[in-house]
Amino acid sequence: MVTSDITVPRRIYHWVDFVSVVALIITGWYIYMPFSWAPGLMGTMRMIHFVFMYIFTINLMLRIYYGFFGKTGDWERFIKLDISKDTIVWSLKHYLLFRDCPEKGRCGVFQNIAHVVIVNLFFLQIVTGFLLYYPESRLLSGLTYYLGGLTMVRSIHFFFMWVMVCFIIVHHYMAMAEEFDKVKLMFFGVGKEKPKLTELDVSMPAGAKAKAKK
């Protein structure tokens, strides 16, 4: 049987992450700009935001643990970029002019960048979120000050929401258009022939790929 690198834990992570980010965006948006035509929601919306912020945080921590000690050991994906003149030119041609990729799996510079950015953004979102959660904490006030005060922390948290909205739009479009097999794998665990991640995953850095191939 051909096994896939998109293992069950990774799929569970992706589902939980997807649901909680969507919930956090909807509730966060409401917290920022509550509509007055449907009163009575703020308490509930904040409650949902706080429940999902824990789910989201724990989920990410588990994923990072899995990245280091799990079966796929793909932690490099969180920080490593496969950028060179070649890959950038190939990716541009591939995405803008719809050329075929000269070297399989190395035309995903933009997906690659987006992944690295988004993981770190999640992390910063958690940090700013907890600063907002404990606004009167003496312990955390130093970090809040360093980031430019509570107003700035709120703005950063809010701005990242927009970045995430954009990420969700672009990431899912690209995934559906370029790697539909992978999408099916990620969400439903079904694929035509359960291909290996290394062949599918255009955004995986070379080092991790070599490791996974072994």
């Binding site: 700009m33 927009w162 909205v165």
Partner: peptide
């Protein structure tokens, strides 16, 4: 940031 965000979303879409 509201304007910036909406613009970003529009461009992405």
């Amino acid at each position: 940031l509201d304007t910036v965000g909406r613009t970003m979303m529009g461009v992405a879409g």
